[in-house]
Simulated scan of single mutants.
Amino acid sequence: MISRVNGAKSKQEELEIVNQVTAKLRNKFKANQEEIQFTPLIKVLYLYILGYPCPWANLECLMLLSQSSFAAKRIAYIVYGALFDENHEMTLLSYNSIQADLHDSRPHVVSLALQSIANTVGAEYLRMVLPRVLHFIEKRKAPPIIRARAFACGLKMVRMLPEFSDVVMKAIGRYLNDSSSNSILNNVISIYLQIAVSEDGKWIKPLQESQTIKINWSCWSS
């Protein structure tokens, strides 16, 4: 497909090829509703990158997201991030799948879910996953890849849900005071400062209330 599209000699020829590919993909999705394969969704992603809207693939993306295979989930989350945003009407339909992934025993699956939350979902969605995100921020034995993504979610929560800023800031503050935590401390401090500084460069309320936090700078590796 890619070679055919790249070999098109005109925009009209490219459009004809894309329409043919789109029709084949839609027929394939209809014929295999029980198990969506991730290879067709890679083609959907390519079409999206070229600038062609692919709303007909939204449901297939959500179905692939619910599969247990990590390879399938990885592709599904990439396509999900491209096709969906915080204002998309179907974003909430992914809640059960993402919530299940947040409880998965595989760190990389949890990381994919957290990254999707940080990049894609809106305020209502953030409220629903807040307890689980705080769990990963505060969990001392959580793998660095999970905790880093959780802090990114925390940053988004403070910006979109200011009513929860104190809760998130206190959780991050406890991490800064943990002398055993040094693997992602640079990233955490960066996020902490992004939360605490407003657009005009002034300290905002969350940091003012957290100035009593004593940061263990000795474990800040350069």
Results as ranks from 00 to 15, higher is better:
Val133His: 07
Asn182Glu: 03
Ala113Glu: 02
Ala152Phe: 13
Phe164Ser: 04
Glu89Cys: 03
Tyr95Ser: 02
Met169Glu: 00
Ala150Pro: 02
Tyr95Asp: 01
Ser179Val: 14
Arg132Asn: 07
Glu124Thr: 09
Gly81Asn: 12
Val121Pro: 01
Glu124Phe: 09
Val158Asp: 06
Arg74Met: 13
Val158Cys: 15
Tyr125Arg: 01
Arg106His: 15
Arg127Ser: 06
Ile172Pro: 00
Lys141Val: 06
Ala72Glu: 13
Ile78Tyr: 15
Pro144Thr: 07
Gln99Val: 10
Ile146Tyr: 04
Arg106Leu: 13
Leu93Phe: 11
Phe84Arg: 00
Val168Ser: 12
Leu102Glu: 09
Pro162Trp: 08
Cys153Gln: 05
Asn119Ile: 04
Lys141Tyr: 11
Phe151Cys: 13
Glu89Trp: 12
Ser165Pro: 00
Met160Ser: 12
Val133Phe: 03
Tyr80His: 10
Gln99Arg: 13
Ala171Phe: 08
Arg74Gln: 13
Pro162Tyr: 11
Tyr77Val: 09
Leu114Ser: 00
Thr91Met: 01
Tyr175Leu: 15
Phe151Leu: 10
Leu93Asp: 10
Ile146Leu: 05
Gln99Cys: 12
Ala150Lys: 09
Glu124Met: 04
Tyr175Pro: 02
Leu176Arg: 03
Asn119Val: 06
Tyr175Lys: 15
Val121Trp: 02
Ala142Cys: 07
Gly154Asp: 03
Asn87Glu: 07
Ile117Pro: 01
Ala171Leu: 01
Met160Arg: 08
Ser111Gln: 06
Arg149Pro: 00
Ala150Trp: 10
Gly173Glu: 02
Lys73Glu: 04
Arg106Met: 11
Ile137Pro: 06
Ser111Val: 01
Tyr175Thr: 15
Ile137Ser: 06
Lys73Ile: 09
Glu138Phe: 12
Ile98Cys: 01
Asn96Cys: 05
Asp85Cys: 07
Phe151Glu: 02
Asp166Gly: 09
Glu124Arg: 03
Asn96Met: 09
Val109Asn: 05
Met169Phe: 13
Ala100Asn: 15
Ala152Pro: 01
Ala123Asp: 05
Asp178Ser: 08
Leu102Asp: 10
Ile137Val: 14
Ala142Tyr: 14
Glu163Thr: 06
Lys73Asn: 12
Tyr80Gln: 01
Val110Pro: 01
Pro162Asp: 07
Arg159Met: 10
Leu161Gln: 04
Arg149Asn: 06
Tyr95Pro: 00
Ala152Gln: 13
Pro162Arg: 06
Val133Cys: 04
Gly154Ile: 00
Ser179Ile: 14
Ala148Lys: 10
Ile98Tyr: 05
Leu93Cys: 08
Leu93His: 07
Asp166Val: 07
Glu86Ala: 12
Val133Asn: 07
Leu176Thr: 07
Val129Cys: 02
Met160His: 04
Lys170Tyr: 14
Gln99Gly: 03
Ala171Asp: 06
Ala123Asn: 03
Ile78Phe: 15
Val167Phe: 11
Ala82Val: 10
Val167Trp: 13
Ser181Gln: 10
Asn182Tyr: 15
Arg132Pro: 00
Gly81Tyr: 03
Ala82Cys: 12
Asp178Tyr: 13
Ser180Met: 08
Phe84Gly: 02
Ile75Arg: 09
Gln115Asn: 14
Gln99Trp: 04
Arg159Ala: 13
Val158Ile: 11
His88Cys: 01
Lys141Gln: 06
Cys153Phe: 09
Ala82Phe: 15
Tyr77Lys: 00
Leu92Cys: 02
Arg106Asn: 15
Arg127Tyr: 11
